[in-house]
Nucleic acid binder design. Structure first.
Lengths: 95, 95
DNA sequence: ATAAACAAGTTTATAATATAAACCAAATTT
DNA sequence: AAATTTGGTTTATATTATAAACTTGTTTAT
């Protein structure tokens, strides 16, 4: 009946991160932090998880002299998200 | 931007329980268990949480001699679900 | 009638997850 | 040059989810 939901995406913060990345070419740590209101520590951890799952790519570089972490969605992340949404619809659409 | 999601509903099993209850007059423990595939212990705990939040009503009676726990959605539960879905859409609809 | 197996849950313990607090290194401001 | 800010990471703690063990009572087989 109801299929299980990808636990990696069924997390408010990780879902927000992916949601943001789907709408842009890429976004950096600070931007995502502001958009989500997450603490830096939590964001760091969750970005790491999405990265390890290869749902997002993470590029660490510099903006002038300041460190800059840039994220973008991967094809795998896009697919996982699409599947997640399909499954989620079964939970939230009226029977 | 993205509004926080009701943590009580943003749980796979609790969302499944509410989803099931929205489609029926009422459903008992065993039925919900079969539909969701959840373990009895987990289901017991999650039903309790939804009950304490008054999202569902829980009626304990007997089916002949066997105990029977019947659940149904409350108006409060319906409202919370509707709001949850509205907020969730902001996460999953394309930007 | 009694023991074995089953049903419907609950309680308690453990594993996973999320969050926050503390920390670090470098840059900027005063 | 000391204090503050930026951009994070690491470690500790609180919360949540899950499973294992237990309880109460029932049905079935002996």
């Amino acid at each position: 009946m109801l299929k299980p939901l990808d636990p990696l995406l069924h997390s408010e913060l990780r879902l927000a991160i992916v949601s943001i990345l789907l709408g842009v070419e890429s976004a950096d740590f600070v931007y995502i932090r502001k958009q989500t209101g997450a603490t830096a520590g939590n964001l760091s951890v969750q970005i790491d998880k999405l990265h390890k799952a290869e749902y997002i790519s993470v590029d660490k570089g510099f903006n002038g002299k300041m460190p800059r972490t840039t994220c973008s969605i991967t094809p795998k992340g896009r697919e996982a998200f699409a599947e997640y949404v399909e499954r989620l619809k079964e939970y939230i659409s009226p029977k």
